[in-house]
Computed example of a mutant assay.
Amino acid sequence: MSERIPRATSSGAGRVLIAVYAIFALSATARAGVQIAGRFSEAPVAYLLSALAGVVYILATIGLAGHGPGYRKLAWAAVAFELAGVLVVGTLTVFDGADFPDDTVWSVYGRGYGFVPLVLPIIGLWWLRHTRAR
């Protein structure tokens, strides 16, 4: 009996998904770096959350672009964590924005980024499921 191998997450439409994750990894990390370096004391929680989002996007990009079960597990973990982060931070910023004097990538469900941070992990999880071994 042969073992069923999942399809590569980096093929077909997965390439577009990886490109979007890479863009978000770069933009979130750069934004957080500038914020932390220049005005960390103004909103440390928000800026650290933006840095965390950048790291999560980097890990998701690596996981989706890589080949093999370890990369796939990394992608599942990063994308699931991303969705949880967007939902938790988004909800907190909607109901109690005073705790966040400046926006994060995930504030108000990614409003500052056209809500892409809310939609992206849903598409990412769907893609991981779609490309699984059957």
Rank of each mutant, 00 (worst) to 15 (best):
G68Q: 09
G68A: 09
G68S: 09
G68W: 10
G70W: 06
G70I: 04
G70E: 06
Y71M: 06
Y71R: 11
Y71I: 01
R72W: 05
R72K: 05
R72S: 05
R72L: 07
K73G: 02
K73V: 08
K73I: 06
K73A: 15
K73L: 12
K73P: 00
L74D: 04
L74Y: 07
L74Q: 13
A75G: 07
A75Y: 01
A75V: 10
A75Q: 03
W76I: 11
W76A: 07
W76V: 12
W76S: 05
W76D: 02
A77G: 06
A77M: 11
A78E: 05
A78G: 08
A78S: 14
A78N: 06
V79K: 01
V79T: 14
V79E: 00
V79Q: 01
V79C: 05
V79Y: 00
V79S: 03
A80C: 04
F81A: 15
F81H: 02
F81L: 15
F81N: 03
E82W: 13
E82K: 04
L83C: 07
L83E: 02
A84M: 13
A84V: 15
G85C: 11
G85S: 14
G85F: 05
G85E: 12
V86R: 00
V86T: 10
V86A: 03
V86N: 00
V86K: 00
L87M: 15
L87Q: 03
L87Y: 00
V88K: 03
V88N: 03
V88T: 12
V89C: 06
V89E: 02
V89A: 04
V89Q: 01
V89L: 06
G90T: 03
G90V: 01
G90H: 01
G90S: 06
T91M: 07
T91R: 02
L92E: 12
L92H: 03
T93Q: 08
T93Y: 08
T93E: 11
V94H: 11
V94Y: 12
F95D: 09
F95Q: 11
D96T: 11
D96C: 05
D96S: 15
D96V: 07
G97D: 15
G97V: 08
A98L: 10
A98Y: 05
D99V: 04
D99I: 02
F100K: 07
F100G: 06
F100W: 14
D102F: 09
D102M: 13
D102G: 04
D103L: 10
D103K: 13
D103Y: 13
T104L: 08
T104Y: 01
T104P: 03
T104G: 08
T104F: 02
T104W: 00
V105D: 00
V105T: 14
V105S: 02
W106N: 08
W106C: 02
W106R: 04
W106D: 07
W106T: 10
S107K: 07
S107N: 10
V108L: 13
V108S: 11
V108H: 13
Y109I: 09
Y109W: 15
Y109D: 11
Y109R: 07
G110N: 11
G110L: 09
G110P: 12
R111C: 08
R111N: 13
